[in-house]
C-alpha cells in the first residue's frame, strides 16, 4: 500500500528558528496521525514542508506516492487559527467557499453544487446557523470549526492540520475528534499537529514524535512509551540545536590568531 505521506531525509530551515534534520517517516493511509513534540520542535514546519510552503533544504516529501503537484486537490491544509486576521470582511460561508477555489481554479465561478458542498461542510461542523455571521463575531471554537469546514469543502483524501485543538472549547474539541474519526472511517487520512500528551493516545492511532529530528514513528501502542516520550521532551541534543541556529546565519569570520 502506498503511504499517504512519506518523508525522506527531509531537512528544513525556517525563519531563524530551529530546523528539522533528516526526517525519515511514513504516514500510512487511513490513519489518524498525530505529530507530537515540545514547543519549537518543528511540528508545524513538518506539515508546511509537505504543502510546499517552506523551502526544503534537502530530502523530499511525497503524497500518495508522488509529488504534491500531481495530487494537490486531494490534500487539504488547515493552518493555525492565529495565522489569519479574523477582522477580515468575510462571513463564515465565504470562508468555507474558499475551499472550492482550488478545484475551480482562478477563472471558474462557484456553481450551485459548490455552494451546496460548502453548506454541507458547515452542517457537518454544526455551524449552519452561523453561515451569515462575520467571522470576527465567532468564538475561537467556532472559528476553528469554520476552518475545518473549509477543509471539508475541499473533499480531500488527506487532511493536514496545524494545532486544530488550540484555544477551542471542550464541546468543539469533542466535535472535531468525532469528525476526524468519521473522515478516517470513510477512508481519509489525517495528520494533525498536537501538543497535549494526555489526549494524544486517545485521539490518534499513529504518532510521529519530533524534536528537531524524528525520535520515533509508528502505531500509538508502540511509540507512546515513557522512554520515547522522555527522549522527545527531555532536553534537546545541544550540539544539534546549536548547529540548527548557526546554520541559519552566515558563517562568522574568526581571526585564526585569536
Amino acid at each position: 500500500m502506498t503511504p499517504a505521506v512519506e518523508f525522506h531525509d527531509l531537512t528544513v530551515s525556517y525563519d531563524r528558528k530551529p530546523v528539522l534534520f533528516g526526517v525519515d517517516a511514513v504516514v500510512p493511509e487511513k490513519s489518524l496521525c498525530g505529530i507530537i513534540g515540545p514547543n519549537g520542535a518543528g511540528k508545524s514546519t513538518l506539515i508546511k514542508a509537505v504543502m510546499g510552503l517552506l523551502p526544503v533544504e534537502g530530502g523530499w516529501t511525497q503524497v500518495f506516492g508522488g509529488p504534491l503537484d500531481k495530487c494537490r486537490q486531494r490534500v487539504a491544509y488547515v493552518p493555525q487559527r492565529s495565522s489569519v486576521d479574523w477582522d477580515f470582511p468575510v462571513n463564515a460561508m465565504d470562508v468555507v467557499l474558499m475551499g472550492r477555489y482550488g478545484r475551480l481554479g482562478l477563472f471558474k465561478r462557484p456553481e450551485k453544487t459548490d455552494r451546496a458542498i460548502a453548506a454541507e461542510a458547515l452542517e457537518k461542523v454544526q455551524m449552519s446557523a452561523y453561515a451569515d455571521r462575520q467571522i470576527s463575531q465567532l468564538s475561537g471554537g467556532q472559528q476553528q470549526r469554520v476552518f475545518l469546514a473549509r477543509a471539508l469543502a475541499q473533499q480531500a483524501d488527506l487532511y493536514l492540520m496545524d494545532e486544530p485543538f488550540t484555544g477551542v472549547d471542550a464541546a468543539t474539541e469533542r466535535a472535531i475528534v468525532t469528525l476526524l474519526q468519521d473522515i478516517r472511517g470513510k477512508g481519509g487520512t489525517i495528520v494533525a499537529v498536537h501538543h497535549d500528551l494526555t489526549t494524544a493516545p486517545v485521539y490518534f492511532d499513529h504518532l510521529l514524535l519530533i524534536n528537531l529530528r524524528l525520535i520515533a514513528s509508528g502505531p500509538v501502542e508502540e511509540v507512546f512509551t515513557q522512554e520515547l516520550l522522555q527522549k522527545t521532551y527531555g532536553g534537546r541534543l545541544t550540539v544539534l540545536s546549536e548547529m540548527a541556529f548557526k546554520g541559519m546565519k552566515k558563517p562568522e569570520f574568526r581571526d585564526p590568531r585569536e
Binding site: 504543502m51 491544509y77 495565522s83 474558499m98 477555489y101 482550488g102 482562478l106 465561478r109
Partner: peptide
C-alpha cells in the same frame, strides 16, 4: 472581475491559497 476570488484568498489566507495551488 476575473481574479476576484484569487485576490480574496490571497488577502485573507495566503498560505492556504498557495497550498491549494493558486498563483
Amino acid at each position: 472581475l476575473i481574479g476576484y476570488r484569487g485576490f480574496l484568498v490571497m488577502a485573507f489566507d495566503e498560505a492556504f491559497g498557495r497550498a491549494m495551488g493558486l498563483p
